[in-house]
Design a protein around this nucleic acid. Structure first.
Length: 297
DNA sequence: CTGGTCTCCTGATCGC
DNA sequence: TGCGATCAGGAGACCA
């Protein structure tokens, strides 16, 4: 389940393989994983829409272009590429969703996971042709094409500040007066980009704040603690290469190591690592939520 | 506008 | 051994 640390690990593992390399071809096995820019449904109704999926242009998938940079905002990756120094920079945004993987295979290296592969890019290197693979069994992931940086900026405008560098001030205004649970607010990508279920629970535990507290009830002192906890948890997780619960890997197929540091996520009913109190569980913000009833107030 | 619920999808797991 | 039910979850649509 890629959240910010996993997506950042994918980004970092892709860079050495892709920067400066040219994409010579792409095979799109499932057309509906690519959301056309300006799709009013945001791609949500792609299966049920009576309108046939748009014909996909190779340019949208960066064919013929050289990759210049890979950025991340929240849980989204953006691959920037140009076909010539004078050409406009095109961008492909990748959202991994629940089960998405972005894998790189060097020339001659085989891909073991051949099922649920939705797109394969051919990457030209000095040693031959490598492959960039988008694989996503549950298909909650998406690819989005943008013709220029401005349209990407418009798209990213709907995201809140990146959670890795979140400052308490950025939380104060949007949460003031809010009655919804702080856990639900942390999962709202328009408020804060990058936190998902795992790191929301871990951050709230680290900050000593109950997940069901009304967001507007947090004092400025608590918001400071929370922002500090989010940055700390996320940066530690990035340093560990993310959390691998089931099948997450980076672009090189390496698993993360942060799952061993989880203190509340998936530990309902087990003793708190700090005070040994049995951890509580509830359904909150449409997610299973675990916390320590003694450490979190 | 806000916040809660539904929905998309597949694989793992569990009870019988 | 096999099968159906259940759960997991990111995020947009939808609705009160």
């Amino acid at each position: 389940m890629p959240e910010l640390p996993e997506v950042e690990s994918v980004r970092r593992s892709l860079e050495p393989h892709l920067l400066g390399r040219r994409i010579s071809a792409v095979t799109l096995h499932r057309r509906d994983v690519l959301i056309a820019p300006g799709d009013p449904t945001g791609g949500f109704s792609r299966q049920r829409s009576s309108i046939p999926p748009r014909r996909v242009g190779a340019a949208e998938l960066l064919v013929g272009a050289t990759i210049e940079q890979i950025l991340r905002r929240g849980k989204q990756l953006a691959v920037f590429a140009r076909s010539s120094p004078a050409a406009p920079t095109r961008i492909l945004v990748v959202q991994l969703g629940m089960s998405g993987q972005f894998l790189y295979r060097a020339p001659g290296q085989r891909l073991d996971e051949a099922d649920h592969v939705h797109a394969v890019w051919r990457i030209e290197t000095r040693d031959g042709t490598g492959r960039l693979v988008f694989r996503d069994p549950r298909r909650f992931g998406q690819l989005r094409a943008f013709p220029d940086p401005d349209s990407l900026e418009t798209h990213w405008h709907s995201l809140g500040p990146d959670a890795l560098t979140i400052q308490p001030d950025a939380l104060t205004t949007p949460l003031a007066g809010s009655t919804r649970a702080i856990k639900a607010a942390l999962l709202d990508q328009s408020l804060l980009a990058g936190v998902g279920n795992i790191y929301a629970d871990e951050s709230l535990f680290s900050a000593g704040i109950r997940p069901d507290r009304p967001a507007g009830s947090l004092s400025s002192r608590e918001l400071e603690r929370l922002a500090h906890a989010i940055r700390g948890i996320l940066s530690s997780a990035v340093a560990a290469g993310g959390s691998t619960l089931r099948d997450y890997t980076d672009a090189d197929g390496r698993s993360g190591g942060y799952q061993t540091a989880h203190r509340v996520y998936a530990r309902a009913g087990r003793p708190c690592t700090v005070c040994a109190t049995t951890l509580s569980v509830a359904w909150l913000g449409q997610r299973t939520t675990v916390w320590c009833p003694r450490c979190q107030l």
